[in-house]
């Protein structure tokens, strides 16, 4: 019983001192978060850094990237921060940095789903680009295969093959030709558009069309 109350007091005391310490740091301890940004050498750092900023906790503190790709964010009190690189060219993973009251830094991978998992990284920070920033969807590009296998083209191409190439092939082979002729294709009467129109709109236009049609019939004979 005695012991229990003692531990309780001890715990309480430690909490109290911790709170006190925290308040003190707020006033005194101001630290700097340092690091370096790296990305593929296609872009020079000097040109890129003009459009980049380093944000701590989404803009609570901010800093700029120097021309040699290093950065330093100053006057940061102790605590836990998310370090992000603001730019429009590359994708960077955010990093979590813990600063103790004595100014000791610890960097770790930021996993927002499980904030308690520790996956320590090196400090000073090394932030590497994961790839170029992609803002746009890709338009479907025109490809030959796409066009050839599209249902519309297939619908036109397959009958064309049947109609044009098959008779040519059979022309050389008389046996096959006979066989084909024996195979009675169902005859489809395709209505002539011109005639259909003439029938529909009889009247004045009719005689002219009729003669034309008659001529055609005669020629066929």
């Amino acid at each position: 019983m005695q012991l229990k109350s003692f531990t309780k007091i001890a715990v309480l005391f430690s909490i109290l001192t911790w709170v006190n310490g925290n308040e003190l740091e707020e006033q005194n301890g101001r630290f700097s978060v340092e690091g370096e940004v790296s990305f593929p050498p296609t872009k020079t750092c000097s040109g890129w850094s003009a459009g980049a900023r380093i944000l701590l906790n989404h803009g609570q503190y901010s800093g700029f990237v120097l021309q040699d790709c290093t950065f330093r964010v100053d006057h940061v009190p102790s605590g836990t921060y998310i370090v992000q690189v603001e730019n429009t060219d590359f994708l960077f993973e955010p990093i979590r940095v813990d600063i103790t009251s004595k100014g000791k830094m610890r960097a770790r991978k930021l996993t927002i789903l499980q904030p308690n998992t520790v996956n320590t990284l090196n400090y000073p920070l090394k932030i590497a680009a994961r790839g170029p920033m992609r803002f746009f969807k890709k338009r479907e590009e025109w490809r030959v295969t796409d066009m050839l296998f599209s249902p519309m083209v297939l619908m036109i191409a397959v009958p064309l093959v049947v109609m044009l190439i098959l008779p040519k092939m059979t022309a050389n082979d008389p046996e096959l030709k006979r066989e084909m002729e024996n195979m009675q294709m169902p005859k489809v009467d395709m209505p002539d558009v011109g005639e259909m129109m003439a029938n529909l709109f009889g009247g004045s236009a009719a005689p002219k069309k009729k003669t034309a049609a008659a001529g055609a019939i005669q020629r066929r004979k």
Binding site: S46, A50, F64, V65, L66, R72, D74, H75
Partner: peptide
């Protein structure tokens, strides 16, 4: 800037940060 705490020098041509000094607390 930042309440007289940070000195920075920038290139005039393109605004690139060249130097940064922590001046005071």
């Amino acid at each position: 800037s930042d309440g007289g705490r940070i000195f920075r020098s920038w290139r005039k041509v393109d605004g690139v940060l060249v130097r940064q000094i922590l001046v005071s607390e």
